[in-house]
Structures are given as structure tokens and as C-alpha cells.
Design a protein around this nucleic acid. Structure first.
Lengths: 163, 163
DNA sequence: GTGGCACGCTTCGAATTCGAAGCAATCGTT
DNA sequence: AACGATTGCTTCGAATTCGAAGCGTGCCAC
């Protein structure tokens, strides 16, 4: 068991490598999205999430939950996307507080316009370097990490609804 | 060889998981840095890099090279850090164009103030979920990815223009 | 029911981000 | 040595980011 207040060289390297790869990939992806479809990363994320959702509809909160993104940022980007006609917002029927976001036909089209390039970038930058075993390993290991992160209460935890 | 214009489910999952873990980790780290030491992520990155450099001195460009960060953004943050007294800037002796950035004693101190919490967060969120084999695997696989990314020319790269 | 608290979203202000344009120093070619 | 291209950094303006505060709405214990 290592001292909780230190990282050994190997741990540090793993952490930094993860950070670096993700940054580089992100950056390249955002370039492509901007060039191919005039979308920012978050905008693409929103559209993609809606596209995967049944009926192309989600509550604002549900959109935000998947992405690591502030509420106010989402409001802003939803405004941009609505202005561009790629999504529409409407009050939810069952809960007056909620706002439903719906992918429009134009939104779906824009997504189709951008996807090939997006996939190409991910293929070229990330997947070229990975064989099947690598992919399995990454998914398994990082999936475990994600689950723990999502589960773990933040330092100043908001108390669970009960208990 | 897979079709260059599609990702299968497993590839997609690997990509998204990587993105998600990195975002969550980043977000948590930035929270901690802000609370413990009034630093932003990029600011910490700059200080940490300088701390690892011989003499705590680097050219602006060398600082930027490691981080995935715009030149102008670096100028801005260097200004902030200088105003806070954590670094100092001075012209390089050997090349009038370059600016050397030096970590001050206060900068080192601030780094020391923030590091324990930083390490704690990384330990808790990332490393708790990883055994030695995982760490080795991550480093090996993602290291390979990084090397290829750093090497690969950007898409619109180097079309040497004719005079 | 009703008071109080949690939830969902938006507004607000301040800070940070980027790319493009600008400026000065250096290099390479002639 | 002089030209243009390149490099290193900064300035500039516009867009985006976040957290805090604000405002309704829903939930629950009493």
C-alpha cells in the first residue's frame, strides 16, 4: 500500500498520459467539428446525446448529466443550438419545471454532415494505435474507474435523498 | 481492417469512456486546486512544469509545448501568475525573441500547498480503482497513442506551398 | 393544507478561452 | 548584406465558461 500523500513515478505517468491523450484527442476533434460543421465540442455532444435518445428528446438535466458540463453552460449552448434551428425547447408535460430538448430534422442532418469526419479523426488518432485487446483493456479498466467516480460522493457530498 | 467511416460499438465505448473519465477527473482536480490554492488547472500545469524543469526555468514555448494550450492563453495565464508573484518573466539571453519563465519561491510554496490535495484527489478518484497491472496497461497503451498523435501531422498539414 | 426545502432552469457578472493579426528577432538563401 | 519566410510572444475582439443568485414548481412531513 502506498502512502496516500504521494504518487510513485509509474502512477504519475499513467495519470499524465491519460490527461495528455485526452487533451490531444479533444483538441483535434474540436478542430474537425468546427471545420466540417461549425459546431463546438459541447454542441456536438448535445446533438449526439439527443440522437441516441428515444424520440430525440431529453430533459435539460438529463443532457447535462451525461456530459461534464455546467447547468448554465448548457442553457447557453441550448440557446445557440435553438437559434441555429438544430434543436427545439418545450416545457415538459409532466413537470412544469423541466424543459424538453428535441433534435430537429436540421439537427439530425447537421449531425450526419459532421459524423464522417468525426469518425475519421477518432479512427486516425486513437483507434489506429489500438488493437482489439487494447480496446477491451481500456474499456474495462476505465469503465471501472468511471463507475467509481460516478458513485463516489464529492468531497463535500450533497447528502443523498435519504440517509 | 475496419471500414474507415464507421466505429463499432466497442470502439465507440472505449472512446467515450476515455473522454468521460478524463472529464470527470479534470473537473474534480480543478475544484480541488481552486479550493486549496486558488489556482486554475492551467495555472497549476504551468507551475508543475516549471517545478520539474532544471532551475525552475523554461521558455514560454517549452511550457506551452507540453500542455495542450494556445499561445495566447499561455500569455494570459503567465500574466496572472506573474501578477500573483508565483513566476517571473525575463528575456532570454541567447535569443531576444524568447521569454524565460521562472518559478519563484512563492510559486514553489504555493505548489507545495496544493500538491497534497492534488495527489489525494488523483489517488481517490483514479488510482484507487487501478492495480499495478492496470497502471502498466494504461501507460503502455495510451503512451503508444500519444506518441502517434504527437508524431502524426495534422490533417491539413505541410502541403508545402509553391512559390 | 401549508411551510419549508429540493429541484430545474435561466440570468448575471467576471474570468478565461481561442484564432487572427501584429511586432520584433532570427534564419536561410542568394 | 538584404530579402522573405519563420519563430516567439503579445494584443485584440469575440465567444464561451463557470458559480452564484434568482425564480418558479414539486414534494413531504407535520
Amino acid at each position: 500500500m502506498t502512502d496516500a500523500t504521494s504518487l510513485d513515478a509509474e502512477q504519475l505517468r499513467a495519470y499524465l498520459t491519460l490527461k495528455e491523450v485526452s487533451s490531444l484527442l479533444d483538441h483535434a476533434v474540436e478542430q474537425q467539428l468546427r471545420v466540417d460543421g461549425g459546431l463546438t465540442g459541447p454542441q456536438f455532444g448535445i446533438l449526439a446525446r439527443l440522437n441516441d435518445a428515444p424520440g430525440g428528446r431529453l430533459r435539460m438535466t438529463d443532457v447535462a448529466d451525461g456530459m461534464v458540463y455546467s447547468r448554465s453552460g448548457l442553457t447557453y449552448q441550448a440557446g445557440q443550438l435553438e437559434k441555429a434551428g438544430l434543436i427545439s425547447r418545450s416545457p415538459a408535460e409532466d413537470d412544469e419545471r423541466s424543459v424538453m430538448v428535441t433534435l430537429t430534422a436540421a439537427g439530425r442532418e447537421r449531425l450526419g454532415q459532421v459524423m464522417p469526419g468525426h469518425i475519421e479523426v477518432v479512427q486516425r488518432l486513437l483507434l489506429t494505435s489500438l488493437d482489439r485487446a487494447d480496446i477491451t483493456a481500456i474499456t474495462e479498466i476505465l469503465g471501472r474507474v468511471r463507475d467509481r467516480m460516478r458513485t463516489a460522493p464529492p468531497r463535500s457530498a450533497a447528502p443523498r435523498r435519504r440517509a
